[in-house]
Computed example of a mutant assay.
Amino acid sequence: MSRLVTRAARPSLTILKAAILFGATAAGMAQAQQSPALDRMSLSAGAFYADPKIQLGGDTRYGRLDTPNEKIGHDTLPRVKAELLFGDSHGLSFDYFRFSKGYGATVDGDTEYEGRPVSGTISANASLRVEMARLAYKYWFGKEKNAFGVGLGAAYLRAKISGSGDANVSAAAPVENYSWSGSGSASDNVWAPTVELSWRHALNDKVRVFAEAGGIKKNGGRVEGKVYNGSAGVEWAFAKNVSLVADYGIQKIDLHRNGERTADLDLKLTGPSAFVKVRF
């Protein structure tokens, strides 16, 4: 009987040891804490009050057309951010914004049509919509008041433009006048890798400061180009799980469309952003 009891007790002893080991490990994980500059989970919703500067260009049946590089008035862009932290150092970050704006321009100049120099005026009205979403994995260094993050991920960018235009051009030797009008639309989307750098600092339990920078580059394919972004700001927790975030940033989008008729989009957005952030 004693042998039977001893053998039956061994599995229970093994399970007990495993339970003690698991409990000790769980207790150690519970005691470990991330940097006070980071949240376990957060969701931010707000707006980017941008000062856009835009230049469009493309091939037409009458030659190359490029608009001036000019400001087109302030615009408010909806923006959403989210972050998730696994353990003490591994995290995910998400960022989305949308730009939608009407645009009108008149261009005077010279070009070449069917081997002959022509000059004239082209007027265009366009509606531009740009959407960008980024998802990145970040590794965070530091568990004190300073935290530094390095991220790798992917970005999705979609641009759509539609509009109408009128042109009046003339050519010499022999003298001829051309007039045309038309309308149309085009859209493209692209996936590209992204690299991100972040810094967070907790001044105290309620106030943090931060800085972020990132870059996207896409070579080859129907659409290629690069996107750069950077921002710096401050966060104030006015309640236990709710804070206000304000920053000043820049988004630089430079895209080139390949094909029989190429097209270019150069968009620069600068200005402040404000968010309401729920954090845990």
Rank of each mutant, 00 (worst) to 15 (best):
T14A: 11
A173Y: 15
Q33D: 08
E224T: 00
K71Q: 13
A45L: 14
E212R: 14
P11N: 01
V245D: 15
R3L: 15
V242K: 12
F48V: 03
S162W: 02
L16C: 10
E224P: 01
D266K: 11
G57V: 01
V278G: 14
S179F: 14
V5K: 06
S181M: 02
R98W: 05
M1L: 07
A45P: 00
F94I: 08
T14D: 10
K252V: 03
V130T: 12
V223F: 00
K71Y: 08
G28F: 06
K160G: 10
D95P: 04
F141T: 05
G165D: 02
S181H: 13
I15C: 07
Y248T: 00
D51G: 04
G259Y: 07
E144L: 02
D254K: 15
A18S: 13
Y156N: 02
G23M: 03
G120C: 09
A50R: 01
F97G: 01
S185L: 00
S243H: 08
R129F: 01
K53A: 01
R200W: 09
A37D: 06
L21I: 13
D205S: 13
L267V: 00
R3F: 12
A246N: 11
I161T: 12
T60L: 05
V278A: 15
Q251R: 15
V209Y: 12
E70R: 11
E144P: 00
G46Y: 10
Y49F: 13
A239I: 02
I15Q: 13
S243N: 12
W191H: 06
A192S: 13
G182K: 08
F99M: 02
A8H: 05
R7F: 12
K277H: 09
W180R: 07
L38P: 08
T6Y: 10
I72D: 15
A82D: 06
I161R: 04
R261A: 09
I15T: 13
P272I: 01
A237P: 03
L77K: 08
A171Y: 13
P36Q: 06
K206M: 10
R200Q: 13
A246Q: 11
T14F: 14
P68D: 12
G109K: 08
R208W: 04
F280L: 11
P272V: 01
Y139K: 01
D205Y: 03
E112V: 15
H201E: 07
L16R: 15
A18G: 09
V245Y: 15
G63W: 02
D254N: 15
R10P: 01
T67H: 06
Y139A: 00
T111F: 09
G63F: 09
L16W: 05
K217P: 00
A237M: 06
Y228R: 01
E83H: 12
R129E: 15
I72M: 08
K138H: 15
